[in-house]
Amino acid sequence: MWTLLQIELYKIFRRPRTYIAFAAITSLIAIVQLGLKVDGKEYADFVMADFKNSFSIDGNTLNGYFVCYILLQLLLVHVPLLIALIAADMISGEANGGTLRFLLTKPVSRFNFIMAKFLAATIYTIALLIWLAILALFVSMFIFGTGDMLLLKNSYVVQLQQDDIFWRYSGAFGFAALAMTTVAALGFFLSQFAENSIGPIVATMSVIIFFTILSTMSIPLFNLVKPYLFTTHMVSWKEFFDIRVDENNATIKGSIEHPERIVRSVAILAVHILLFVGASLFIFKKKDVLS
């Protein structure tokens, strides 16, 4: 199994395609950081315009923590597309290249084969997120400095103390890893139904775009299905940045307003992963390799 995993990782990281995602994330983050560095004040003013009508905000709201939050908000919606690029290709790519039949004539059980491939896709996903964390968080902290974080939410504003933020990002990135693994599992699942990688990649992206739109729109009809869409739960990393207040309306350091939402989303995403991978195993075990 370990050998199989090594081989799968070797294949992933020897392919030029793998680095498209890393390059895309790097350039996107660099551009956003550059933009915020040059014109960040205006951006912050624009975002906070409504709030600034009644309040004056003093200090560096545009610090590294805040920039990272903006970056995550911007990117985590699009990272699934980059994940799909690799995950949805895991099996279909081999079928397309003709290597699948070579691989499966080797003394390797299909169960191990699928598990190794899925684990490899997961590791790729996590590597991508670690890279994202390094750029979005650490580089932003370096460029923009640190400080308290002021977040505008739907109906309220949250101010987090600077020494109460890092662990939240750890949690958020951990959660994002799970959310992205769900995407990987979906892409992976779809990838066994085609003998070219375009189909599953486009299918994965379509599902995510479609679900995200349903999740975003506040229409009563859509609200009924929202709780069942995994895309709704993919944004629950934000819950790490909402804090509880005491009876005097002062924040309680180290608290999370809705930990139960995180737990629920983690559970739902985990169930999705299990379903996708389980279905992949079930179908692939019986699949006739005709490519």
Binding site: G97, G98, T99, F102, L103, K106, P107, V108
Partner: peptide
């Protein structure tokens, strides 16, 4: 076995391909 076209990983060298499949054979 070689079934139909002998498709291997195009982005790897002949040696790398051979080594990879040898490993898979355990």
């Amino acid at each position: 076995a070689v079934i139909e076209k002998p498709d291997v990983y195009k982005y790897l060298s002949a040696y790398e391909n051979l080594k990879l499949f040898a490993k898979l054979s355990g």
